[in-house]
Structures are given as structure tokens and as C-alpha cells.
Amino acid sequence: MYAIRTANLTKKYKDIIAVDQLNLQVKKGELFSLLGVNGAGKTTTIKMLSCLTQPTSGDAFLNGKSICKDIAAVKSLIAVSPQETAVVPGLSVRENLELMCGVHGFTKEKQKAKIAELTELLGLEAVIKKKAGKLSGGWQRRLSIAMALISEPKILFLDEPTLGLDVLARSDLWDLIRSLKGKVTIILTTHYMEEAEALSDRIAIMKDGKLLICDTADKIKARAGTDDFEQAFIHIVKGVAK
């Protein structure tokens, strides 16, 4: 069984087709990247897969559960780290983590254990008592991912997780994402080609809501006839690749 399987997944907004008959499969434990220029349909795809918006037609199945019919079951499988850092600035790092434990209905014991585990995994010890709003962008992203991991999701959506971060913060976050590979299925959207190439098992490139290609970075480069992934992306999106 695939972690994610979409079947003609489509989203229309009035006369605009944001996602057009999308068919793709993501294996369990895979790190799968969605690439595309602005308006390609990446965020809309993630919103549909995370039950934030209903598809106009088609369906998608997460661990076999339909995003149209089994919303509660799908929500129990997933977690999202949105594009903007979705933390509560007025609460401390610990309180942000406690909030997520609370909304997932954890007992006090489980809450304590989970916070200790994630604090260690994400290296949050140094900032655990600090207000989230006082943290740097890199630390806020870390906290955002920790909040997403609280529920022990089977599928984690990371929407442009390194957007706006400096080189060091991005490198740290890449290490963190690598450390999660295999433990959880990760769907990553990004505008950074090198990020997708360095982290992903497979990459899907979208344009105008359509899936252009879905393969490993090496095969995409071979298909485009270039050794440079960014050039390959440009060739494919501009329709140059055969």
C-alpha cells in the first residue's frame, strides 16, 4: 500500500484549474518533493492532501484512507508545517509543544515523554523556556517542525520549510529533515532546486496544476540531458525536455 495515492485529483477555483487530474504515488518512508514555479499547484495539492480544502473532483488516499470520505482518519495520520511559521509567539517553546500535545489529547505522562523526546531530537534544550516570538527564523522553523511531529504522524507535510533562512540555518534544517527520512513519509515543497535534489528520494515537477514529471533527481537530469538539476527543471518546465 502506498502512503499517498492520488486519483485524478482536481481543484478548480471558479474558472481557474489549480490542480488538474493529478495522479501520483508516494511510497511509505519516502521523502517526496513537489517542485514548480509560483501557481504550479503545489500548495493547493498539499492543502487537499491535508484535508484543508476539498477537491473539486477525484480523490486521494493516505494509507488507504480517502481525503473525501475519511477526513478524521486522514487527520490522525498527518501533520503539517505550514509555509509561514505557525507558532504561538506569546508562548514559550515548551508551551507551544504542550499546546500540540493537548490538542492531540495526550495524557500528562505521554506529554512529558514526547516533549523530552522532541526537545532532544530537534536540539531545543537551549531555547525551551524562551518565548517563540523571540526566536530567530531558524529556531522558529525547528519549533514548527517539532510541533508537527508531536502527533507521531505517518505523513508529514513540510511547505517550504527553509524559506527565508540563512545558509547555516538551512543546513541545520536539512540535517534535521535527513534524520527523519525513513521514519516518516515526508512531502516537501520548495523553491530551492538544490534542496530538492539533496534531500529527496523522488521529485515531482508541476506546472499550471499538471504533473510534468515524477522521478529521481538523476533520472530527471538524464531526461533533460543535463548534469545540472536547476537546468533540468527549467528545461522541463519550459517544455524543452523530450
Binding site: 491535508s50 484535508c51 484543508l52 478524521a72 487527520k75 490522525s76 498527518i78 501533520a79 503539517v80 508545517s81 505550514p82 509555509q83 509561514e84 511559521t85 505557525a86 507558532v87 504561538v88 509567539p89 500540540m100 490538542v103 492531540h104 489529547g105 510541533m147 508537527a148 502527533s151
Partner: peptide, 13 residues
């Protein structure tokens, strides 16, 4: 405005 609700909408609340 902060996307916090977007995150929380994917929880069982």
C-alpha cells in the same frame, strides 16, 4: 493571520 489555525485545522480539534 499567522497560519496557526491552518496548522490546528489539521488536528482533531
Amino acid at each position: 493571520g499567522s497560519s496557526l489555525l491552518q496548522r490546528l485545522y489539521t488536528t482533531p480539534l
